[in-house]
Design a binder for these strands. Structure first.
Lengths: 244, 244
DNA sequence: CGAGCGATTGAACGCTCTCAAAGTGAGTGG
DNA sequence: CCACTCACTTTGAGAGCGTTCAATCGCTCG
């Protein structure tokens, strides 16, 4: 299945688990590791492909592995007993999956589109920490970044209007695309309106209405392939921070 | 100034920075360190007292130090340009302050009540990482916990009703009190209604109304000294998860 | 061409917010 | 000791933003 969101269709993580040749190496956790360290990491990793909609792991389950997303898109979420859902983040190529490292997963992970992952058994990875302090340091740094993102999201969820939420969301996606070396404008939206709603603490209807509102205002344009063209990022930024 | 929230009034962090005798040692980051490591840590730490309402550090400022809260209560928050505020967390005795470790602070920290802190210069602490991998590992674990808390809070902010938010909040405070060895019921509420509102993504009025509503329903009782008596924690838990 | 799912649009409701006023309590000064 | 102040909390009334419920549209796939 071809998808505009599979950024590295020519390389498949299943073909090789040799980290030295990993397509996302420059942006992933392994970015700052030495060649010898990469080799060791490659020894314990294995590729995995997940279809769109497929569960990678579930909240509450024992956490037996960590992953690096090598292609595609993944969503993380928590559920309430009655089915209400909060998506806590979307991951793309190069992002690390399995943080908030604990005995059991504190969230579920599901593929948004067909994705490839690089899997690291938890026990073996932790065993490497002793030998490779830089690896732990890197994971620590990534966790810190994830925490900073989570706090930013809390500000969004607790204090921003629907309009501001959508604009912040688009800007964040755009910014991440840059960091990944992908086109930042137009921004691809691999996830559904329901997913966006559950990420921003809104309903699908409100998300949809807000998009049309922004479209009517000339701030964005909805393109084919679920991509959004941002007319002027600074205008979007103004709205996102309450200045619009 | 006497306060029911200063849990260790008889010990002052200013009197001694020797970690071996720290009152919060059993619960703090230093919990799993060896005696020799504690001594080294003590060499780079210094006590600091902050008055209620005093800023400890501001968002955007260079992050030059980390802290351990040894007594009192601290709030962390992020602001929008127009003044809207999201409190991302409350810290108590034993909690670590300064996570989401980055070049600049991603949030502001302010004392809720007069508090004592144990201060660690950032550069010197990071220098210790090389010698004491366990210290870094411990800090990593604490950051992971903070991330898990942040995700839980995202679920609360994005998907819970005012009633559910308040109940979740009281239960969390109660649970933390247990971990700290403090009385878990009644629960002390050192922070103002405005703080609670800015933490839960509500307004003071809604917080106040919800408290009276829960009081009328017989679920809680408001005691003097800003303490809340929980009639039945299981009932509170049911409401918090949407079952009430 | 029809089925089916996701997205969009419409109308009405309701939870929470906003604006406003009264109540409460700690601290201060006469 | 008491009156006063001021900040915080509580309560009330009304409005609004986002939700809920419902219908239509559009695209993909069989």
């Amino acid at each position: 299945m071809k998808s505009p969101f599979n950024l590295y269709p020519e390389r498949n993580a299943l073909e090789s688990t040799r980290c030295e040749f990993c397509a996302v190496r420059v942006v992933a956790v392994c970015a700052t590791l030495a060649p010898e360290e990469l080799r060791r990491l490659g020894e314990i990793s294995q590729g995995r492909t997940v279809e769109a909609g497929q569960l990678i792991f579930g909240e509450g389950e024992p956490s037996d592995a960590l992953y690096n997303v090598t292609a595609g898109a993944v969503k993380l979420y928590k559920l309430l007993p009655d089915g209400r859902r909060q998506i806590t983040g979307f991951l793309g190529a190069g992002d690390f999956l399995g943080l908030a490292l604990a005995e059991t997963n504190v969230y579920s992970a599901e593929a948004v589109v067909t994705s490839t992952l690089c899997r690291f058994p938890r026990s073996r990875l932790e065993a490497l920490f002793a030998r490779m302090p830089r690896l732990q340091g890197r994971l620590f740094a990534v966790t810190s970044d994830a925490l900073a993102d989570a706090l930013e999201l809390m500000l969004l969820l607790g204090r921003k209007s629907a309009r501001e939420k959508i604009c912040s969301f688009l800007l964040t996606l755009s910014g991440r695309a840059i960091g990944r070396g992908a086109p930042d404008n137009p921004v691809p939206l691999p996830m559904s309106r329901v997913d966006i709603a559950d990420f921003l603490g809104l309903t699908t209807e409100t998300v949809s209405r807000t998009f049309t509102q922004l479209k009517t205002a000339g701030v964005i344009t909805l393109l084919d392939g679920n991509r959004v063209l941002i007319a002027d990022p600074t205008v979007l930024a103004d709205i996102a921070e309450g200045g619009g």
